[in-house]
């Protein structure tokens, strides 16, 4: 027993020594060609190092930061590439076909017919116009309302925290819920909006039925939901402005209005830019809200590109045409976000 144990310990010791030795020269060993001997002497090792520098294109590539950090960025890059960009690319490919119904898309004939059809489709123009009106109206009013709320709350009013929570709360609700709320509030006969207007002798108006009013009604509801978000973004920026600047403006004799207009608001520009990007993207996604009220076919005047796209796809099974609309929506989103990204890039934030 004892003899065997001693033998085992001896074997292990030998093995350890071997490992240590091979480690000492290991790096060079892997660098050399396959023909090099393991455990080469010092001179030969130096010689191989020189040769490594000479034929080092591959080696330099391996040393490159991008390659060294590949384990960190490559998996998400592949996932994003496949599930986002490849999907967009595939969508674009479908938009070039005539795919409809339940068959398989035929990729042998590719053309831009669907984009041509979009140009001559009057409903398409109406949807694009509505999308822009919603986008611009919603974003601008949200920015203004949010700014006013933020400035008021920043002045340390009583119950400021409570009010902040109350204003922000609607944003935490889903579109489906708020759509139902507003359907009740806009109800022609019993809705609170018409009841209140009735007190001053106006109405009743068909807020969600009248094609001239409907987009305004939707935009108003969305503003209610998202101005709390702009408020929070502004508020964070306002809190970052040192009190000195308020005091300095006061000492210089600026009125409150002038102080905000000249000193404070200009410093909110970055907050405004990032808030508007988020708002515009929300507006492009207003689909949920409209779908919750009307389903596939919103009231005329409230049909936007997103609802039109879904109607073409899931109601009429016109996959190719719907894909073309999707590409247009994608281009619109890019047009919104590209200037922002470019600006960030120039400022060195990206």
């Amino acid at each position: 027993m004892r003899d065997e144990l001693a033998k085992t310990v001896e074997r292990l010791r030998d093995r350890l020594r071997e490992v240590r030795e091979s480690r000492g020269t290991g790096d060079r060993v892997t660098e050399t060609d396959g023909g090099q001997e393991v455990g080469a002497d010092e001179e030969r090792a130096v010689g191989t190092d020189r040769r490594v520098v000479e034929r080092s294109a591959f080696r330099r590539l391996l040393d490159h930061d991008a390659v060294q950090s590949a384990p960190f960025w490559l998996p998400p890059f592949l996932l994003m590439g496949f599930f986002v960009y490849a999907a967009i690319g595939w969508n674009f490919a479908i938009s070039l076909t005539d795919y409809q119904g339940f068959g398989e898309p035929d990729y042998s004939v590719l053309d831009l017919d669907n984009y041509g059809a979009m140009l001559s489709d009057p409903a398409m123009w109406a949807a694009t116009r509505n999308t822009f009106a919603l986008l611009v109206g919603f974003t601008l009013v949200c920015l203004v309302v949010g700014l006013v709320l933020a400035i008021l709350l920043d002045r340390e009013v009583r119950f400021g925290r409570t009010l902040r929570t109350i204003y922000l709360l609607p944003m935490s609700l889903s579109f489906i819920v708020t759509a139902q709320f507003w359907m009740w509030m806009y109800n022609f006969n019993f809705g609170i909006v018409n009841q209140l207007l009735g007190v001053v002798g106006l109405g009743p108006y068909s807020w969600l039925g009248n094609p001239d009013l409907v987009l305004g009604s939707v935009v108003f509801a969305l503003i209610w939901q998202f101005s709390g978000y702009t408020m929070v973004v502004y508020l964070a920026a306002l809190r970052a402005i040192p009190d000195d600047q308020y005091e300095a403006a006061r000492v210089d004799g600026a009125s409150t209005l002038r102080m905000y207009w000249r000193v404070i608001v200009p410093q909110l520009k970055p907050a405004m830019v990032s808030a508007s990007v988020v708002l515009v993207l929300f507006a492009l996604k207003a689909f949920d809200f409209l779908y919750a009220i009307w389903g596939y076919r919103p009231r005329r005047g409230a049909d936007i590109l997103a609802t039109k796209m879904v109607r073409e796809a899931f109601n009429k099974q016109e996959w190719a045409y719907a894909s073309a609309i999707a590409i247009l929506l994608f281009a619109l989103s890019l047009a919104v976000i590209a200037p922002y990204l470019y600006q960030q890039h120039r400022q060195g934030n990206l």
Binding site: P122, A123, A126, G209, N210, P211, R297, R299, R300, D303, R311, N315, K316, Q317, E318
Partner: peptide, 18 residues
């Protein structure tokens, strides 16, 4: 067919519903 019916409904929505 379904797409014709849907087009007719689109037409009503675009031109005729008030």
């Amino acid at each position: 067919t379904q797409d014709v019916q849907s087009d007719l409904e689109d037409a009503l929505s675009d031109t005729f519903l008030d």
